[in-house]
Amino acid sequence: MSNPQIENNFSYHAPKPGQPEIYEEIRNKARELAELIDEKCPKSRESSLAMTNLEQSVMWANAAVARN
Score class of each variant (00 low, 15 high):
residue 22 I to K: 15
residue 34 A to R: 06
residue 35 E to L: 11
residue 30 A to N: 01
residue 37 I to Q: 07
residue 15 P to T: 03
residue 31 R to A: 12
residue 24 E to T: 07
residue 11 S to E: 05
residue 37 I to H: 04
residue 6 I to Q: 11
residue 12 Y to I: 06
residue 16 K to D: 12
residue 38 D to P: 06
residue 10 F to K: 05
residue 14 A to G: 13
residue 17 P to G: 05
residue 18 G to M: 01
residue 16 K to H: 10
residue 17 P to M: 02
residue 16 K to F: 09
residue 10 F to I: 00
residue 29 K to N: 13
residue 14 A to T: 03
residue 11 S to D: 07
residue 18 G to F: 01
residue 12 Y to G: 06
residue 25 E to D: 11
residue 29 K to H: 15
residue 17 P to L: 00
residue 36 L to C: 10
residue 29 K to R: 12
residue 38 D to S: 13
residue 17 P to H: 03
residue 12 Y to A: 08
residue 10 F to Y: 14
residue 16 K to C: 09
residue 26 I to F: 09
residue 15 P to F: 01
residue 8 N to W: 00
residue 29 K to E: 13
residue 38 D to T: 13
residue 30 A to L: 10
residue 10 F to T: 03
residue 28 N to W: 12
residue 12 Y to T: 06
residue 22 I to E: 15
residue 9 N to W: 11
residue 14 A to N: 13
residue 23 Y to L: 02
residue 38 D to G: 12
residue 30 A to Q: 01
residue 27 R to E: 12
residue 27 R to D: 07
residue 31 R to Y: 09
residue 32 E to P: 05
residue 27 R to Y: 06
residue 35 E to H: 08
residue 19 Q to M: 04
residue 31 R to D: 11
residue 16 K to S: 11
residue 19 Q to L: 03
residue 12 Y to N: 08
residue 36 L to G: 07
residue 24 E to Q: 14
residue 16 K to E: 14
residue 32 E to C: 06
residue 30 A to C: 07
residue 8 N to I: 01
residue 24 E to P: 11
residue 28 N to P: 09
residue 12 Y to Q: 08
residue 30 A to S: 08
residue 28 N to C: 14
residue 29 K to W: 14
residue 21 E to H: 04
residue 17 P to C: 04
residue 26 I to R: 09
residue 13 H to Y: 01
residue 34 A to Y: 03
residue 8 N to V: 02
residue 13 H to V: 01
residue 30 A to H: 04
residue 38 D to R: 12
residue 32 E to V: 04
residue 36 L to P: 06
residue 28 N to T: 07
residue 6 I to E: 14
residue 10 F to G: 07
residue 25 E to A: 15
residue 18 G to N: 00
